[in-house]
Write a protein that binds this DNA or RNA. Structure first.
Lengths: 198, 198
DNA sequence: GTCTATAAACCGATAGAC
DNA sequence: GTCTATCGGTTTATAGAC
């Protein structure tokens, strides 16, 4: 197999995806036209369709999947240390990672909105969220094992119970970060940590 | 002033807005065409543009504003009783109202996503959220006044601190209700109530 | 105010040369 | 693989009769 050609191909794909992410972030998925992605990438119609025959939708799915799964890697890395992070710390790790990455949270709002309408996108969200959910659950369980006073009916049950709340707090963070003027991320995280067990 | 004409005008507007809400709920804001709203209302292009010159966007803003402000009325009504509701109960009242109203939470995801892009819609969301936030804050304060053990630095500060968390839990509810298969609303509310002070 | 008909713009995707 | 040029299908909004 031609290694160079393959590497070039991958590099080109990454380049296109990066341009697509910039375009989607700026104008939102729906309002971004292929012309916008073309302009952002400096390439032309044919060049892009040669790599992403699925067009706009495939670009969005690819961009979003990458973004969601990167959260997962961070969480796995952070929670495999000796001292398992508390629920509040888990939230901080994941949300902090999003911001450090320079990801505009609003792209997530757009993804959720699209998933509401397009079955193909919903499917991808289900898949990615499933992975993330599993990581959260595992991280929570590890903490509850060491703090049984918060898990009277066992770490699995306690983790399962609090999981939607933790996810909900993360989702609320994205919404408020995107929509509220002067949103105070630190205050939000402090308040969330205060209500979560620790 | 011609009272009858005015009443008719208002009735017609309500009729159009109801049709628009049905159409937006079914297909989402972006994918709903004016043709869809026309079909749903049984009226014609001219009829609608005579009442809503701003077109699709104006319809969406009007529909969303009404919906958001109704939440506020419910909360005001519920929290003016003798026994102020706890944070968990406040969440239950508002989220229960949304579902009882037959509102599809996904329309809210679409609203947030649009607000991310369209300044006019963002402005409306700011305004409506401001009203709702004020109600939440007032309701929380009333409860903290009666439970000073949770408000060491005064009810105002405690209310202000927990407000974003409560809103975040509500927003997370909408996201999960819209996107997760088999989402268990009761379990979510129970878990949220368990972490909130009561 | 409301209807029918239509214009003007735009978009995603393809065809074919190089 | 990439470029230029363009087609077919939609969409919003308007024009003009009633």
């Amino acid at each position: 197999m031609p290694k160079v050609s393959d590497a070039h191909r991958r590099a080109r794909r990454e380049e296109i995806l990066a341009a697509a992410l910039r375009a989607f972030t700026a104008k939102g998925y729906q309002r971004t036209s292929m012309a916008d992605v073309l302009a952002e990438s400096g390439l032309s119609t044919g060049a892009i369709y040669a790599h992403f025959a699925g067009g706009k939708r495939e670009l969005f799915v690819a961009v979003a999947r990458t973004t969601l799964l990167r959260r997962n890697e961070e969480l796995v890395a952070a929670s495999s240390g000796v001292e398992p992070p508390s629920p509040g710390e888990i939230l901080r790790i994941v949300l902090g990672g999003v911001l450090r990455d320079g990801i505009e949270p609003r792209i997530l709002l757009q993804l959720w909105s699209e998933a509401t309408i397009e079955p193909e996108i919903l499917e991808m969200v289900h898949e990615a969220i499933g992975v993330v959910r599993t990581s959260f659950r595992a991280a929570l369980e590890r903490w509850f094992v060491q703090h049984p006073e918060y898990a009277p009916d066992g770490p699995e049950a306690a983790a399962e119970r609090i999981l939607p709340v933790l996810l909900g707090l993360g989702q609320g963070f994205m919404v408020q970060h995107s929509l509220f003027d002067g949103f105070d991320a630190e205050a939000y995280l402090d308040a969330a940590t205060a209500v979560l067990p620790s």
